[in-house]
């Protein structure tokens, strides 16, 4: 059966969701399924029947975070960025830096060393306690 990733990219022409590995290791294909960050390369399409799927194209209310990713060096080449932003949005609201590290551990960024990503989260005050 087709993967959710392929249905999004090919059938829906929503190419903001990226494929980095196809085996659940990189997180570039992260989407939100009913608000939870999930690797769409591991999800058979039928499994999302009745669920709400949010991709980077449909993400709303995260403009501050998205701008912060540009300003603070959260995105370099940008290939991990849509997945990273969706994973960040799904972090618990009271996450501290250690929670952020744990929450983003499935999203590999080869460019930034993650410091720019933490700066972006802090600048957007998402989650609220990212500053420590």
């Amino acid at each position: 059966m087709k993967r959710l990733l392929d249905v999004l990219r090919e059938d829906c022409a929503l190419t903001g969701t990226k494929e980095g590995c196809g085996e659940g290791e990189c997180g570039a294909c992260t989407v939100l399924i009913d608000g939870q960050a999930v690797n769409s390369c591991l999800v058979p399409f039928a499994q999302v029947a009745g669920s709400s799927v949010t991709t980077i194209e449909g993400l709303t209310g995260a403009e501050a975070l998205q701008s912060a990713f540009i300003r603070e060096g959260g995105a370099q080449c940008g290939i991990c960025t849509p997945g990273m932003i969706l994973a960040a949005v799904a972090l618990p609201k009271d996450a501290d830096l250690q929670d952020i590290r744990r929450g983003l551990a499935g999203n590999i960024c080869r460019c930034t060393g993650y410091e720019g990503i933490y700066r972006s989260l802090r600048a957007a005050a998402i989650p609220a306690r990212a500053a420590d």
Binding site: E19, I70, G78, I85
Partner: peptide, 21 residues
């Protein structure tokens, strides 16, 4: 100065077109 990047916007909205897109 940390001027606004020329190449930023499409990368954070998913609009940037990589070859497979």
């Amino acid at each position: 100065q940390n001027v606004l990047r020329k190449e930023g916007r499409g990368k954070v909205t998913g609009a940037a077109k990589y070859v497979d897109d």
